[in-house]
């Protein structure tokens, strides 16, 4: 074995490029070309076929003066932040509970927790139409009214639309992220806990000194995943709010705004400018996340 290893690594670039070829064909045709096409579209006027002309940065400048764009941006960012802020702590807590409970029931419980993630978001949104439905909805009947509050009109009241979207997302992803965190926690060597327990029995201290540093990469990955998912939120908002932004645009998110601009108003240039305007922020966020993991 030793002798074999010494003569490598393999230096045959041509073979390697050949192996990469299929991926990059798909990459170029279905990702790079649409990206460049979108970029071009965002610099041309809004007529779709033939007659459009070069307008430079006009669409981007118009966005800067468009309150609805900022509303959508703000809603999406808030939605992402709230969802991640709810899901990660909940998932860590649930993973702890799963680790403490008897091992034999784990598969069954994880399956139940995963059920929402296995459901298509469009179907989930249909289900949540009934959960959030006016007075008769599940949430009102089961929780809001029994607790003595007035029934909330989840999908019409502007102050509850975004929380409703967040609630749906938390419900959808918490189980899946829990599974992830649990797998990460199972990989932490027990000795570390034994060592840390020499100095303290405080659970919070054990969590901070042992569990958290080990889980950090998993949590960062989960946060990135959830953030990308949040920025491509479409199905939930589209089905729940019927393609509009909801009352007073309280539920207007980026993808539905893009969709609206393109297919309701036919402004393909504006729509492309919106999609591309977010890309640098997402890239930056991703780069920051990876850098932090790399450092620790």
């Amino acid at each position: 074995m030793r002798e074999l290893r010494s003569e490598e690594p393999l230096q045959r670039p041509r073979t390697a490029y050949l192996l990469l070829l299929p991926f990059f064909v798909f990459f170029v045709v279905f990702w790079l070309v649409p990206l460049l096409g979108g970029l071009r579209m965002s610099f041309y006027s809004n007529e779709l076929y033939g007659t459009s002309r070069f307008v430079g940065g006009d669409h981007y400048r118009a966005l800067l003066a468009d309150p609805r764009y900022f509303k959508a941006l703000r809603n999406t960012a808030l939605y992402a932040a709230y969802s991640i802020g709810c899901i990660l702590p909940l998932a860590v807590l649930l993973a702890h509970l799963l680790q403490s409970a008897w091992r034999s029931i784990r598969p069954f419980l994880t399956f139940l927790l995963l059920l929402p993630a296995l459901t298509p978001p469009a179907v989930l949104a249909l289900l949540f139409l009934l959960v959030f439905h006016g007075r008769e909805g599940l949430l009102n009947q089961l929780i809001v009214l029994p607790l003595g509050f007035k029934a909330v009109n989840w999908l019409k009241d502007p102050s509850f639309i975004l929380p409703a979207l967040v609630l749906q997302t938390v419900w959808r992803w918490t189980g899946f992220i829990t599974l992830f965190v649990l797998a990460g926690m199972d990989g932490i060597p027990r000795v570390l806990y034994d060592a840390a327990r020499m100095s303290t029995e405080s659970r919070w201290h054990l969590f901070r000194t042992v569990t958290y540093p080990f889980l950090k990469p998993v949590l960062v990955f989960s946060a990135v995943y959830l953030m990308v998912d949040a920025f491509s939120l479409f199905s939930g908002a589209y089905v729940l709010l019927g393609g509009s932004g909801g009352t007073a645009d309280a539920g207007l998110v980026l993808v539905s705004y893009i969709y609206q601009q393109a297919f309701t108003f036919g402004k393909f240039g504006t729509a492309s400018a919106i999609s591309l305007s977010v890309a640098p922020f997402l890239l930056l966020a991703l780069a920051l996340c990876f850098l932090r993991v790399r450092r620790s």
């Binding site: 990308v228 920025f231 491509s232």
Partner: peptide, 12 residues
Amino acid sequence: IVLPQQALAISL
């Protein structure tokens, strides 16, 4: 990963 199809939906 960061720029999913959904973001490029219009030109796609």
